[in-house]
């Protein structure tokens, strides 16, 4: 059976990891390659690199980092942040990225999803959606969640699936940073109405939250950052507990 996936997310700026990372074994915790190798060796199923600065000037640095990760890491990885053109995606894939994730640029120009999917295949196009509830409605937000739109989360997710997205990375801004669990109700609704994999993001605080998002949230993968970076949750123990709870997982 296909397993559920555990996905650490690394925030990158100028080719370096930024969010606090507290890994004892690393020579250089700011080096994404070191960190990625460490995560691969302890059983992460894939990795996401989010370029949070994503300036045009910094693009070369990010491409260089992607190439170094691809050289040294033997699990798949996704790169996101500031991607809005076919040429940029082509360059990232040529450097060895397995998937790219687009967010605001897809909202601004939805045809980008079709164009990327047609050119590179749905399997490498992840559409990331940041949303939060406003008056009981899940509304899509842009630019790292700072700009609200009128788009409904579920309608937008359905639209990008039809346009050729291969996967949805849904971050609940209501849950992100709370460590109180994932947005499982919305995740389950996404998983039931769409026929592509859903990655849950935002809210991971303990092992039970991962069990809940796979069972109640019907998520295909769960992404987290700080709980992994600070060693609050250790991936081998997390996966062992998931297995004990009869969740299909790679050990």
């Amino acid at each position: 059976m296909l397993t559920k996936r555990i996905v650490p997310c690394l925030d990158i700026k100028n080719g370096r990891t930024v969010k606090g990372v507290n890994f004892v074994d690393l020579r250089d915790a700011g080096d994404p390659v070191e960190l990625a190798k460490q995560y691969a060796s302890v059983g992460a199923d894939e990795l996401v690199f989010l370029d949070i600065a994503a300036t045009l000037e910094g693009r070369g640095t990010t491409l260089d980092m992607v190439m170094r990760v691809a050289e040294q890491v033997n699990i798949p990885f996704t790169v996101g942040g500031g991607i809005s053109s076919i040429e940029h995606v082509d360059a990232l894939l040529q450097c060895g990225a397995d998937k790219v994730s687009i967010n605001s640029s897809a909202v601004k120009r939805p045809d980008l999803v079709n164009e990327l999917s047609n050119k590179f295949g749905a399997q490498c196009i992840v559409v990331a959606i940041d949303a939060k509830q406003i008056n009981g409605q899940w509304k899509v937000h842009l630019a790292g969640g700072t700009i609200p739109t009128d788009l409904d989360l579920f309608e937008w997710a359905k639209e990008v699936e039809q346009r050729g997205a291969g996967e949805i990375l849904f971050t609940s801004m209501d849950h992100d940073g709370t460590k109180a669990g994932f947005a499982n109700e919305a995740l389950a609704k996404l998983s039931e109405t769409l026929n592509i994999p859903i990655i849950a993001s935002g809210g991971a605080g303990n092992v039970q939250h991962f069990i809940d998002t796979f069972v109640e949230g019907k998520s295909d993968a769960a992404l987290a950052a700080s709980v992994f970076h600070f060693g609050e949750i250790l991936i081998p123990e997390l996966k062992k507990t998931l297995k004990e709870n009869e969740i299909t997982i790679r050990l």
Binding site: M1, K4, N195, I196, D220, R250
Partner: peptide, 13 residues
């Protein structure tokens, strides 16, 4: 067929 999510994406045995 569409009884499963397509593409299959991830780790399987």
């Amino acid at each position: 067929d569409n009884t499963v999510k397509v593409p299959q994406m991830g780790w399987n045995v």
